[in-house]
Design a protein around this nucleic acid. Structure first.
Length: 117
DNA sequence: CTAATGACAAACT
DNA sequence: CAGTTTGCCATTA
């Protein structure tokens, strides 16, 4: 099992990502780019996904509510089961077809607009 | 230290 | 408009 090196420098980044994900209301989703942009877009969207990868092992983090800018469940393969991500989204009222969120523009939750610093 | 990869995204052809 | 390339930054080999 790989050990994710969470240095002090990155710990803050992880916490920020986790905080945003926790604030995502049920029935809503957001994108990696939106979170990266919310954090200042200085990391690149990949770093957000990197943080999410670490969040999969952390209970309480709704990683299934984070998708790519296309609304596609790009991270489904990282869950214990592929269908788990879609199942959870559908359970929250989000329609998912072909591993893609329907009405993504409607259910999209923008942290920059919903969260005021 | 160099090269390759990645739960992305925007630009370019 | 679809496929390809580059940028981003950290991890791994």
């Amino acid at each position: 099992m790989e050990v994710i090196s969470i240095n002090d420098k990155h710990k803050d980044f992880f916490e920020k990502v986790f905080e945003v994900v926790k604030l995502i209301p049920e029935g809503r989703v957001t994108s990696y780019g939106a979170i990266a942009n919310y954090l200042g877009a200085k990391h690149g969207s990949r770093m957000v996904g990197w943080a999410m990868n670490a969040s999969t092992r952390v209970p309480g983090i709704a990683a299934h509510r984070v998708v790519n800018r296309n609304g596609d469940l790009s991270g489904r393969f990282h869950f214990p089961e592929e269908n788990m991500m879609q199942k959870k989204l559908e359970s929250e009222g989000i329609r998912v077809v072909n591993h893609r969120v329907v009405d993504f523009n409607v259910v999209f939750w923008n942290p920059m607009e919903e969260i005021s610093l």
